[in-house]
Design a protein around this nucleic acid. Structure first.
Lengths: 100, 100
DNA sequence: CACTTATATACGTGCTGAGTTATAAAACTG
DNA sequence: CAGTTTTATAACTCAGCACGTATATAAGTG
């Protein structure tokens, strides 16, 4: 699975947002997604690991998950060339409003 | 389907990149993806339409597709808060190198 | 060491997405 | 108007993903 598919799943985006605040144990992340079972969250975390979006380190019995800095950069690199499309569009709108 | 899933599909990302250069007819887009049949491309275009990423206008028998300016902005809005993660990471790396 | 806690994996299931071929719908062309 | 071109939809198949239950693995605890 690539990073685009990883990020397409809403629960995984939720996990990313939680890890953006601070690193958390697998158990904390399981508790944060009450609609899912523990194995379901564990498998989402595996996907995030394998796509380079998060990293884990063991802390005794626990696993501490943290957001990896450059994981999402590949998505951002892809979107960057297109950013001018809506920026130009906004500029055109602003200009139109200013001319009123 | 939401915009994240729409963009997760490589052929659709390819279509987006083609439409970023210039608007094109459905037929030109079909020719640009020789690995796919015409109906397959047509359904990808439907997905891009329904997720607000492209727009169509008829030109007689043809349909002219164009990239919609603000379609990808929802993805960019989502990724923006996380951008500081790798930017800060780069800053830390730069600082480290400067201190050498 | 027996028991519990924390996390990951195995396995089976249902659903959805992406692809195909066949066909419909609509606009050109002689 | 008959035939062709262009595009979209219908019907179907297949693969993969996300899920749950059950189980394995490993580390704490008494």
């Amino acid at each position: 699975m690539d990073v685009f598919e990883a990020v397409a799943e809403p629960n995984r985006r939720h996990l990313i947002s939680l890890l953006a605040e601070r690193e958390r144990t697998a158990g904390e992340l399981v508790d944060s997604l009450p609609a899912l079972t523990q194995p379901a969250v564990s498998r989402h975390l595996r996907v995030l690991r394998e796509t380079g979006l998060v990293e884990v380190r063991p802390d005794g019995q626990r696993r501490i998950y943290a957001l990896k800095p450059d994981g999402l950069q590949r998505v951002d690199d892809w979107i960057t060339p297109y950013r001018r499309f809506w920026r130009d569009h906004l500029d055109a709108l602003q200009q139109h409003l200013e001319n009123e």
